[in-house]
Computed example of a mutant assay.
Amino acid sequence: MDDWIAIGEAVLPIFALIALGGVLKYLPLLDAKGWAAMDRVVYWVLFPALLFASVARADLAGVSLGFMAGGMIATVLVMTFLLFLIARAMKTARPARSSLVMGGIRFNTFLGVAIAEQALGETGITLAAICIAIMVPTVNVISVWTLQRGTPGGGLLRTVGALLQNPLILACVFGAVVNLSGVEPEPVLMTGVDLLGQAALPLGLIAVGAGLAFETLRRHRDLLLVGITAKMLVQPTLGFALLYLTGLDDAALVVAVLWLALPAAPSSYVMARTLGGDAPLMAALLTSQVIVSVITLPLLLGLLS
């Protein structure tokens, strides 16, 4: 019982900040351009600072990176295949099929890092950074392939170029370089980086709440049910089975399975809108998954603990 109370106390503030963002969006504080600017600051400045500092100081010796990466990537590939089969069986149009796949495999980085940090402290942030390095390239390549499959050009080279410029990936890479070099980072510099990183999670979670679109939930009920079940139940269950067999240590197993159970990222809506997916379905999946995750993520943490 005490474990469940501790999990609730850790996760409740996270979802409270998301709810705060949902309320603030309707107040005359920021317009759409203001919220978009905040998203960019968090994504390009604050969050990379948090990840860089964590990876630069982390003890990576005890993490089975190969097993962790292999298990997570295999899980996502299997889920992509299953969702395609389900979408074709439901005779879903190509744009909706692409959005359904993205809703089943993409993840909300801000929420994942926040929960990992609350559950495991600095170790959680380090493991979350590893998940980002593994999963960002994987899900972006699959997403572009599903969106532009069969269209001229395909966009794969643009995707690879974007990944090489992704600030989260670059922050993880630079942090790993500093870590493996054995050079002690300049204390004054790291203090500034730490201050930036401290602002990343609260502002990122508020931005998640501001991006919810409740008006979209009345549509696509069958596809919403498939997308929620696949992301919140099937994928973490499959991931746990595969990762457990690899013999991951407890902390890495918890964060990896948590990552596979996260609701999809707001960037999925932008991709669906600009690359030919079903944008209204994507917005509905994003919103419904965040709502359901209020229940599923604490339950998952309780079961894994």
Rank of each mutant, 00 (worst) to 15 (best):
L301I: 08
G302Q: 06
L189F: 13
S143I: 01
S288D: 09
V144K: 01
I86Q: 08
A6T: 12
A16W: 14
L83F: 06
I130V: 11
F214W: 08
I18V: 13
G155S: 03
Y26L: 13
A93F: 03
G302D: 08
C172M: 07
A264H: 05
L300Q: 04
S64W: 02
A261S: 10
M232D: 05
T229S: 15
A199L: 12
G124S: 04
V141D: 13
M90Q: 14
L147I: 09
I125K: 01
I73E: 06
L189G: 14
P48H: 03
L286W: 02
A207F: 09
L24G: 08
I73T: 06
T123R: 02
L77K: 12
F214P: 13
L225I: 15
W44F: 15
L223K: 10
A272I: 05
G239P: 09
S54R: 00
L248R: 10
L82E: 09
R218F: 12
A252Q: 01
W4C: 11
A252K: 02
T246F: 05
S288L: 07
V257Q: 04
E9Y: 09
P167T: 13
G104H: 06
V294M: 12
L147D: 05
S305I: 01
T92G: 11
A199S: 07
I295G: 12
A261C: 07
V188A: 14
I291N: 09
V160P: 09
L205A: 02
L156E: 05
T287L: 03
M102T: 03
L82I: 15
A114V: 02
R149M: 09
R221W: 15
F110K: 01
L60N: 00
L238S: 10
A210Y: 08
L301T: 04
L65V: 08
A133T: 08
A93D: 14
T229Y: 07
T75Y: 00
R273F: 06
D250M: 03
L224A: 11
G211H: 09
G161W: 10
T159N: 04
I18E: 06
E215A: 14
L238I: 15
T92C: 12
V11L: 07
P298G: 05
M72S: 03
E186M: 11
M79D: 08
G239Q: 09
L300G: 01
I291Q: 08
L77G: 15
L300S: 00
P187W: 01
L224M: 14
L50I: 08
L85K: 14
V42K: 03
G182D: 14
